[in-house]
Amino acid sequence: MVKVKQEQNNISPNANNIVIDDDLLVNQARAGNMASIERLILLYQDRVYNSVLKICGNRDDAAELTQDAFVKALQGLKNFRSDSSFYTWLFRIAVNNTLSFCRKNKKLKFESIDARFGPEGRKQLADFLADSASPDPAKIAIGEEIAVIVHRGLEQLEPAQRAVVVLRDIEQMSYAEIAETLDIELGTVKSRIARGRESLRQILEAVLE
């Protein structure tokens, strides 16, 4: 059964208040049921797009890569074995596609992180980090300027590190799911998360200096 994780990210696909059996939708889609295909797309399109955008950093590319992932996944439904969930399988296609895209477009470097931020955003970020109170993610509402800085900070990470951080902290995947999605060892997931977060910390602290 798919727990609708969008609630955590405030993403609510159309008509997704009902918990739906993924396997049932997949079987119906495999039989050519357009309604099930539509439901699968509506169920996951925002999550896939959100993660892909955080990894590739460009809205147009993210839209294109999201479509690619769905087309490939739905075309390959007949080859899909139910060893893993459709969700993991779809994300595996989407993230690996995006990482390939990032590798091919290495030359398209993101702009320098501190080129566009005014003192206001930096001050807000410094206040947030200096606050001794333990942060509650559910209650945090960061300002737009801080969000842009964090976005840019993520973009400075290595694509492989960025992917695991996004899958963990944004998509809320478990380490095991990340390992399955990226087809890597669990130990690799742990080290990449640790290194990714450390790199992000260094990058953001450099912005504040």
Binding site: N10, Y49, N50, K54, F70, P137, I142, D169
Partner: peptide, 28 residues
């Protein structure tokens, strides 16, 4: 670590463009 994790988690979620579903079905 907790602070930085919460920063990333608090990033606003971006929704897919409105025509995503149509584009996918057209391509299919």
């Amino acid at each position: 670590l907790e602070k930085y994790k919460s920063l990333v988690e608090a990033l606003p979620c971006d929704k897919a463009p409105g025509n995503t579903f149509e584009e996918i079905t057209h391509r299919l």
